[in-house]
Computed example of a mutant assay.
Amino acid sequence: MSTTDETRARSCVSCGINISGTNAAAFKCPDCGVQIFRCAKCRKQSNLYECPDCGFTGP
């Protein structure tokens, strides 16, 4: 795993905060299957996210 992948894996894709040890959601991108992490605050506020690999956007 590269440094970029490691940073991405520990950060909310919407706001960029470190999600280690938080109540974050992990799911696969509906288009390409890449693992995406979102913090509880962004999920609750329905902030948009964009897949870093394919550009898919969702609520």
Rank of each mutant, 00 (worst) to 15 (best):
G16D: 03
D53K: 14
T22W: 03
T7P: 02
P52R: 06
S14L: 02
Q45C: 07
A26N: 09
Q45E: 14
T57W: 00
N18Y: 05
R8Q: 13
F37A: 12
S11P: 00
N47M: 11
Q35K: 15
C32Q: 02
R8Y: 05
G33I: 09
M1S: 13
T7C: 07
I36N: 09
C51K: 04
T7R: 10
G16V: 00
D5M: 10
G55T: 05
S14V: 07
Q35M: 12
C12N: 00
M1V: 09
Q35G: 10
T57P: 05
K28C: 08
C15L: 03
Q45K: 14
C42Q: 01
D31A: 14
G58W: 00
C42M: 01
R10A: 15
V34A: 14
K44Y: 08
L48A: 06
Q35L: 13
M1H: 08
P59Y: 06
V13T: 13
I17D: 00
T4S: 10
K44Q: 12
F37H: 15
V13P: 01
N18H: 06
I19M: 03
P52Q: 08
S46D: 11
A40M: 07
S2Y: 08
I36E: 09
D31Y: 01
C29P: 02
E50P: 01
G21A: 04
R38K: 13
A40H: 13
Q35P: 09
E6Q: 12
E6S: 13
C51Q: 00
E6A: 15
M1C: 11
S20G: 02
A26V: 09
D53A: 11
V34G: 02
P52S: 09
S46L: 12
Q45I: 06
D5I: 11
C12F: 03
S46N: 15
G33C: 06
G55F: 00
N23R: 11
A24R: 07
V13S: 01
G16I: 01
C51P: 05
G33A: 10
R10I: 09
S2E: 12
A40V: 07
Y49F: 15
A26W: 06
G58R: 03
A9S: 15
G21H: 09
K44T: 10
T3A: 10
S11Q: 06
C12S: 02
R10W: 07
